[in-house]
């Protein structure tokens, strides 16, 4: 009985008007549909607000009303499956890539990916990182085989559009950005407790991407391309 009630209630909250009649809501003073609408509205508005909090740059770029319309469409097809609202929206960048309204702004999906990378960088677990001191302590056999794993806060983001300029325009720090400015490769992670975002040149992004993919450090920095240090 309670199982059916909760199934129907969830359907009603998510927009199924026919489910409302099966709930046995006491209509005294206000009909069942209007009572249920309080929950439906809260469900929609609170989760649209949660998405807006996770994608602040997207909201700045397109404005509150357009953002809410897209957020509600996303909610209908990809509702949260994690109790932490800060985790809601992993699929939102891909949704924006596919939604015909959002695709009129060709860079919007990438802006969303940048917001999501920022969110990951802020919230990822703290894990011990590997630094030069660790490297100095390793013997040569281990050095040869050393592979590094990316910290969970790290995202590498390649865009065909000038994402940092677009973000600055959205934040009111720049007047305008030309898409002719070209793309950018970004590395976003948490460094000493603060979210950090840097643009990498072609060599650097190649190096970091290969490291993150599990290629041995020695292979990437050595190969046969460098000479031994000269003795003085």
């Amino acid at each position: 009985m309670l199982a059916e009630l909760q199934r129907d209630f969830a359907r009603a909250v998510r927009g199924d008007a026919l489910a409302v009649a099966r709930l046995g809501i006491d209509p005294t003073g206000l009909n069942a549909e209007r009572r249920l609408a309080v929950y439906r509205n809260h469900h929609r508005l609170s989760l649209a607000a949660a998405l807006a909090a996770n994608f602040p740059t997207v909201e700045k770029v397109i404005g509150e009303a357009a953002f809410q319309a897209l957020a509600l469409s996303f909610l209908a097809i990809d509702p949260p499956r994690d109790p932490r609202v800060a985790e809601y929206g992993r699929g939102f960048p891909a949704f924006l890539e596919s939604d015909p309204r959002a695709r009129r702004l060709v860079y919007l999906g990438d802006v969303a990916s940048l917001d999501w990378a920022h969110n990951i960088a802020e919230r990822a677990d703290d894990l011990p990182t590997f630094g030069a001191a660790h490297l100095a302590q390793m013997d040569s056999a281990h050095l040869e085989a050393l592979r590094l794993r990316p910290h969970p806060s790290l995202t590498l983001l390649r865009s065909l559009y000038p994402l940092l300029k677009i973000r600055d325009v959205a934040a009111g720090r720049e007047e305008g950005a030309s898409l002719d400015a070209g793309g950018v490769d970004l590395m976003i992670w948490r460094k000493a407790g603060a979210v950090t975002c840097v643009a990498l040149d072609a060599a650097a992004i190649g190096f970091v991407t290969a490291l993150a993919a599990g290629r041995p450090l020695a292979e990437l920095v050595l190969g046969d391309a460098f000479l031994a240090p000269q003795s003085f």
Partner: peptide, 25 residues
């Protein structure tokens, strides 16, 4: 209250009927 159904989080504190069954749950 309850807020999850079929793995979906509805992000609200939803009401229960006050019954023996709800009490047992």
């Amino acid at each position: 209250a309850w807020c999850r159904q079929d793995g979906v989080y509805l992000n609200d504190l939803l009401p229960l009927p006050y019954t023996e069954e709800a009490l047992a749950v």
